[in-house]
Nucleic acid binder design. Structure first.
Lengths: 84, 79, 79, 84
DNA sequence: GTCGGCTGACGTCAGCCTGG
DNA sequence: CCAGGCTGACGTCAGCCGAC
């Protein structure tokens, strides 16, 4: 009965819960780390975009100016709009 | 002759058994208390993780729905 | 005169007190057992929500990182 | 002592846990509902894009063909690439 | 099979806390 | 203040289950 999902001894119950908690905490921190990297990368690219904005204005030469309201909106070029 | 080599005395055997069960009961209550505290601590941890995950999901969903997230990002990057 | 109107008998008072504490102890053990089951059930619920939230976060993150998510979307829409 | 965060009576502990669980379950289902809508909307727009692909080909008349590899990739027009 | 380790449930004592 | 309600901790009995 040692490998049962609901052991009888309290020691085994504690061990099972500690094991599950360790696994879940690992998965949680993994996802949070990835999200942190995504955020950092997004921020860096936003800054890059912002700093290169003065130089990239050449592509609008002879045309209309870019919509300044969309600057700073990180999802302005998404293929479809889903404003839920 | 009366052999009292080990524990043939019924009263002595009973006392020994009661003594062992006494200590076992103490340890059992201790483990049970520790188990309940383990459960409560686990609940608290899962509670915080769930709150964080829900907040993160809201942020990503709002980001995907064209809502400006620059403020939160800068706020989180500041600390 | 000896007034036995209520419970001036010390032995009777003790028996009554023991009786009440007996029933109280039973109800207390029952409530404690129910509380532990409540904790275990809460842990299970939070566990499932945690797993679901992590999976959803992975999906949204992968979606944001240009990984094709059509399969999972169609799979989830099929049921 | 009724409004304490760690009551002494088991009844109050159970009530507190049930209350918290109800609130957290409500927030959880709220987020999941929103994600379901986002998914459904995304799917609908993908299908719409796919069905209108034959008609919209006119905009490429006389030019180069669209990149077929990007069809079905729902995040193909994101402003920045973060392939973590 | 029996025997010993753990645990569930009981009754009792001691102590905390609140309502009266 | 204190009588009473709940609970923590104890020792005991009964029962389960694995090891011998």
């Amino acid at each position: 009965m040692a490998a049962s999902n609901n052991p009888r001894k309290f020691s085994e119950k504690i061990a099972l819960h500690n094991q599950k908690q360790a696994e879940e905490t690992a998965a949680f921190e993994e996802v949070m780390k990835d999200l942190s990297l995504t955020r950092a990368h997004r921020l860096q690219l936003q800054k890059t975009q912002y700093l290169q904005l003065g130089q990239s204005r050449g592509q609008y030469y002879g045309g209309s100016l870019p919509n300044v309201n969309q600057i700073g909106n990180s999802a302005m070029d998404l293929p479809f709009q889903t404003p839920f | 002759t009366s052999q009292t080599s080990k524990t043939d005395d019924p009263q002595l055997k009973r006392e020994i058994r009661l003594m062992k069960n006494r200590e076992a009961a103490r340890e059992c209550r201790r483990k049970k208390k520790e188990y309940v505290k383990c459960l409560e601590n686990r609940v608290a941890v899962l509670e915080n993780q769930n709150k964080t995950l829900i907040e993160e999901l809201k942020t990503l969903k709002d980001l995907y729905c064209h809502k400006s997230v620059l403020g939160k990002d800068l706020q989180k990057a500041a600390r």
